[in-house]
Simulated scan of single mutants.
Amino acid sequence: MSAPNSLKDVYLDEMKDLWSANDQMTRAVKQLGEKVSDPKLKQMLEHSVGGIEKHTGVLKQLIEAAGGQAEPEHCKGMEGLVTEALKHGIKEASSDGKLQDVAIIAQYQRMSHYGLAGFGSAAAYAKVLGMSDAETKLKQAVSEIYKGDEYASKLAEAVEQAAA
C-alpha cells in the first residue's frame, strides 16, 4: 500500500483493511464457535459468521464501485486480535465450559469493536466524498454490528452469572 494522496485513497484503504479483517475474524469465530458450551452463544456466533460474510460482500462491491482494486490489504490489527482471541478462547481456555464461554464472548466483542471503528470511519469518509449509497450501506453494517454486540453483552451477563 502506498501513501494515500486523497480522502478517497484513505477510504479505499480502510475498506480493503476491513475486508482482510473480516476474513480473519470469520475464521476465528468459526473456531471459537466449536468450543462454546452455551447453545445460544453457539447460535449467535454461527449467525455472526453470516453477517461478517455479508459485510465483506458489501465492502467488495463498494471498493469496485469507487474504482478501487478489489483485493484485501492484510490487516495486522485484526491479526493481533485473532491471535489473542484464539489464545484466550481456545489455547488457554478453562476446563469449565461457562468460563470458556465468558472468555470467548470477550474476545468476540474485541474483534467486533475493531469492525465498528473501521466501518464507522469508512461511512464518515463516504459521506464527505458524497457517496450517499456507500454511506448508507456502511452505516447499515455498523447498525448490524452494534446489534450483535448488544446481544453478545446480554449473553455475557447470563453466562457470567451461571459461571459465578
Rank of each mutant, 00 (worst) to 15 (best):
S2M: 15
A3Y: 09
S6H: 09
S6D: 03
S6Q: 01
S6M: 11
L7C: 07
K8V: 12
E14T: 12
M15G: 01
K16C: 11
D17Y: 07
W19L: 07
W19Y: 08
S20L: 03
A21Y: 02
Q24K: 09
M25E: 03
R27T: 12
A28F: 13
V29F: 15
K30D: 10
Q31E: 15
E34C: 09
S37R: 11
M44T: 06
E46P: 08
E46W: 09
V49A: 06
L62S: 02
E64Q: 12
G68T: 00
Q69G: 12
A70C: 15
A70K: 15
P72C: 08
E73W: 11
E73I: 14
E73L: 15
C75Q: 00
C75K: 03
K76F: 08
G77I: 08
E79N: 14
E84A: 06
L86D: 01
K87S: 14
I90L: 08
I90S: 03
K91I: 06
A93K: 00
S94F: 11
G97P: 08
K98I: 02
L99M: 12
Q100H: 05
V102C: 13
I105H: 08
Q109V: 15
Q109N: 14
M111N: 01
H113D: 09
H113S: 06
G115A: 08
G115V: 03
G118A: 09
G118D: 06
F119L: 03
A123F: 02
A124C: 14
L129S: 07
L129H: 01
G130W: 11
G130A: 10
G130V: 02
M131N: 04
S132W: 00
S132I: 11
D133C: 10
T136R: 12
L138T: 03
Q140E: 14
S143M: 10
S143K: 13
K147A: 15
G148M: 03
S153R: 01
S153H: 04
A158I: 02
E160L: 12
Q161E: 13
A162M: 06
A164G: 13
A164W: 06
